[in-house]
Amino acid sequence: MIYYLLLPLLLLFLVVVQTTILDLFSLGWISIEISLIVVIYAGFHLDALRGGILSLVIGFFLDCLTSAIFGLYTFLYILIFCLAMIVAGRVYGEKPTLIASFTGFCTLLEGLVIVLFYRFVFSADILYALPEVFLPQAVVMGLLSPLLFRLLHRFEVFPHAADTRPARRI
C-alpha cells in the first residue's frame, strides 16, 4: 500500500527535477528523460499493475507539467511500458548493452510518435527533430540507462534490505 501512497510524490518530485534541474544540462537542445528510463525499468522489473500505474502516473505528471497535448506522454509511456514488458519476457534484461540499445530505441520511438502525431493531427512538419534532437537524445539516454538501471535497482531493494537475515541452519 505504501508503494501506491509514496509513488505519486516521488514521481512528481522526479518530474519536477527533470523539468528544472536536468533541463539545465541539456542546454535547450535535448532533454534528459529520466522518467522514460524509469518506465522502461518498470517494464523490465515490475508486474503489470504496479508498472502500469507507475507509467500512467509519471506520464500524467509530465502531461500536466510539460506537454502541450494532454495525454500524449501518458499514452507514450504506457506504450513503452508495454513494449518493455514484452521484451523483458523474451530476453535477459540485465545486460547493459540490451538496456542501452532498448532505451535508445524507445527514445527514437517516442520521437517518431510525437513527430507523426504533430504531422497527422496538427499538420505540423517537425521531421527535422528526429535527426537533430531525438537521435542525439537516444544516444545520451542509451548511455545513461545502464547506470540508472543499477541505481533504480538499489533504490528498489533498499526498503527490503532490513529484512535480510542469514539463512537458518536446519
Binding site: S55, L56, G71, L72, T74, F75, L79
Partner: peptide, 11 residues
C-alpha cells in the same frame, strides 16, 4: 491502460 490513455489523448 492503453485504451484509457488513447481516449484521453483523442479528446
Amino acid at each position: 491502460l492503453l485504451i484509457i490513455s488513447l481516449t484521453v489523448l483523442s479528446f
